[in-house]
Design a protein around this nucleic acid. Structure first.
Lengths: 197, 197
DNA sequence: GTCTATAGGCAGATAGAC
DNA sequence: GTCTATCTGCCTATAGAC
């Protein structure tokens, strides 16, 4: 049901989002400009303003698209017949994929700049993390039922600890660029949730 | 041996660093300007340039002072007759103190913006995390000897997991401003290192 | 040490032609 | 949809007086 586009993969708005997303993930929302995006695409900044009224609207669209794609990936994992530890590993794998592209999680980056963001972007970032927490909590509760996962405190607290651990590992591993750094942290977080069995 | 200063606590350079540090911790290095600092202190931006040649030099000084103070705090904890879990709790308490001021760890914030930082700042940030890792590794090794701590993999990996978990928890808890969020994550990380006993 | 004044550049954004 | 041209404002930084 997607409209056919014989002449190019992705229209201009999509390509703007692609470039802007990479720049935000690598440099932050306050670390890139319309001129950066325009130059890379070989168009003018005025053309960008045609597709996105301002930087705030572009930012909103970035968060919305990122959250939507991430939610899709989580649904796909949830649908597979895996035990909880395997699902958590898959979840951590999503982060490793982003890291291999030498990027930070878009919303992790925006969390750092939270105080400087337009309201609509803030709300999108909060929704992203709420959704991730809810998904992880459900998986952890599955693990408790299966007997494959154990933790002190509530499932939502354990979900947040796991999520925070992954975001923090991306943050700290990126300067060194060492994927093994991130994967070791993923294993450590998982071990903390499973070694009690 | 500190020079006496009857007329004021902290000279101008110190007060510039105080304001700039808070702004970086709350808004990021790319999210504040010389004008912000000058206005808050009631001086001109030209006066700032007298004390710090440019924003890069100010940034360097910020990282150096922060790392020095943090190292002092770690030495104080190391000197106390505590078991490893208690030292880790104290370490986590340092992060809670920063968070209560509604700030991010300075170097955690700078890690997000790493790709946009001047070289000298990058090196300072890397040294900060290397030092933290080394300190945590030593505490974890103490814990293994005591039998109070256990983990899979190497001590340096466990140290990184713990550090990343705290930085990530600060990052994600700050939008909501909920200190309990951070403290729950601290407990969760500690439990992951001690529940195996 | 701090000021006023200002340079020079880049930011986000708009008008209007094509 | 994309362009050129331009606006306004903010940024870092400097010159030179006091």
């Amino acid at each position: 049901m997607t409209a056919p586009r014989s002449h190019r993969v992705g229209d201009t708005a999509d390509r703007i989002l692609d470039v802007a997303q990479r720049l935000v993930q690598q440099r932050g929302f306050n670390g890139f400009s319309y001129a950066d995006v325009a130059e890379e695409l070989g168009i003018s900044t005025a053309a960008l303003h045609y597709h996105f009224a301002g930087k705030a609207e572009l930012g909103e669209a970035l968060v919305a698209r990122y959250a939507s794609r991430f939610a899709q990936a989580l649904e796909a994992i949830a649908a597979e017949p895996l035990d909880a530890p395997a699902k958590l590993e898959r979840y951590a794998g999503l982060y490793a994929d982003v890291f291999r592209d030498q990027r930070m999680c878009l919303c992790g980056m925006l969390a750092a700049e939270f105080q400087t963001l337009p309201d609509a972007m803030r709300e999108g970032v909060l929704r992203f993390f709420d959704h991730s927490e809810a998904w992880l909590r459900a998986v952890l509760e599955q693990g408790v039922r299966e007997g494959t996962v154990a933790f002190d405190g509530t499932a939502i607290e354990a979900a947040r600890t796991f999520l925070a651990g992954l975001e923090g590992a991306m943050l700290l591993a990126r300067p060194s660029g060492d994927i093994e750094w991130l994967e070791a942290a993923s294993r450590g977080l998982l071990t903390g949730l499973t070694s009690v069995s």
